[in-house]
Design a protein around this nucleic acid. Structure first.
Lengths: 238, 238
DNA sequence: TCTCGAACGAGAGCACCGCTCTCCCTTTCT
DNA sequence: AGAAAGGGAGAGCGGTGCTCTCGTTCGAGA
């Protein structure tokens, strides 16, 4: 039943001119915001400047976003998606059996994305924006990088190449059961995975926010070295 | 030569009434700022509100701080010192020979301080404030927690109870030589120490900024467990 | 096809912000 | 005592997020 009607007006897509214009303008606003975010940082992001950039009245923006925070939230979701996509795309190119290689590639991709999108990164992994009360919209996209890590660990476990967690074994019940399921591994490896995930973004944040100044010599080398050791911690050796 | 003159006007202290008043007012301003910071977050910290709180004209603040960023920088230094002091004080109470205990106590103190001073924490470990270009004043106080970690590792090394770094050995030259010296250990343990330090604040940030929501069951337990495993990574087992 | 309501853009305006400048008084130094 | 520096208050500038009102335009139902 793929009628011409269906093609001209596909389901779940804007049908009227007004709806199409609305969708386009919404995208244009977020685009302009992202563009502005490239050189000013979340705090200085100005609704009026975005409006000027688009040649419209600042009040008109409020037809599309209830507030500056709402716009920021949209950008946060986009940023999570952009980061997730970058990591997924890079990791997908690696031989499925090379679990350590997949881990290194995924983490390098995350760091590279962060360095290329500093302000977007600090939007999602810096301090939360003032009034922002972690809307549920962000929960899903936030998990994408975690899911990649999960898949790598799960595949390694299935292949039987997941070694013991290094050091004292994590006690059970630390990680939410649902997350453990997603990780497809035992609780100990789930904990190690979350620990690795924490360190990944901790290290990126430290580098981006300047805490490694006068401490780390070569950030590239440091990151790779630490990531390899971290993989070992999680039992990922091949 | 401790003359009455010297007692009335000790060296390096405000001598005139004007200088004393200046020092007091400067402190009052930072106090008011810190008070405001307790419930609004760095971005919303308002110079005018501070002035209102102190019953003075907003323009008068500029006699004491060149700009809002300058005030923020002062708060950053204070926050680093406050955190450093809290960690040092807690760690000092532990038996010097109990290196693992010192590590656990120090890291727990850091987390406790962060939970008690959320906005001050995000001021120093969240995304850098907009125009802020990490003034050199902040370098020294920022290292205090690192120095505590350093001392623990160095003492353990001296006592001969510092085990091997877990997993693949870090390559040399990752960490600035000066920092390695401070850590009083070999480059491998220095790298592991920096890695542990990174994870410490990465985990605190993740908890504070909400990234552990729906992932970690009990943050207290999680923190302790991970910290113990991390100590093992750095070779700290006793 | 016409009509009426919803969507929309523009503009003025409010309260707030950081910051500057000027004016005037007080304190300190010479 | 006089000059110079320090410090407070107030007005004001350009900016912000956000609201409200007022026309216009679009689109769906009669």
């Amino acid at each position: 039943m793929l009628s011409i009607w269906g093609i001209l007006a596909p389901m779940n897509a804007p049908r009227t001119a007004r709806e199409r214009a609305r969708a386009e303008l919404t995208a244009e606003i977020t685009d302009a915001a992202r563009r502005q975010l490239a050189d000013v940082g979340p705090t200085d992001l100005s609704l009026r400047a975005i409006a000027r950039d688009l040649g419209m009245a600042s009040s008109a923006i409020y037809r599309y976003f209830a507030s500056r925070d709402a716009l920021l939230t949209a950008l946060i979701v986009d940023a999570y998606d952009s980061l997730g996509e970058a990591v997924e795309a890079a990791e997908a190119l690696v031989d499925r059996g090379d679990h350590l290689g997949r881990w290194m590639t995924a983490t390098r991709a995350a760091r590279a994305w962060a360095l290329d999108h500093r302000h977007e990164y600090s939007l999602i992994y810096g301090s939360p924006v003032p009034g922002y009360a972690a809307p549920t919209d962000t929960i899903d996209p936030a998990g994408r990088v975690g899911l990649v890590v999960a898949a790598i660990l799960a595949d390694a476990a299935e292949a039987g190449v997941l070694g013991m967690v290094a050091g004292p074994q994590p006690v059970d019940g630390l990680i939410e059961p649902g997350v453990v399921d997603q990780l497809g591994a035992d609780p100990a490896h789930a904990a190690a995975g979350v620990q690795a995930w924490t360190w990944l973004f901790g290290a990126i944040s430290f580098e981006l926010f300047g805490h490694y100044n006068n401490v780390v010599v070569d950030p590239d080398e440091w990151f790779d070295d630490a990531m390899a050791r971290l993989a070992h911690l999680a039992g990922l050796t091949a």
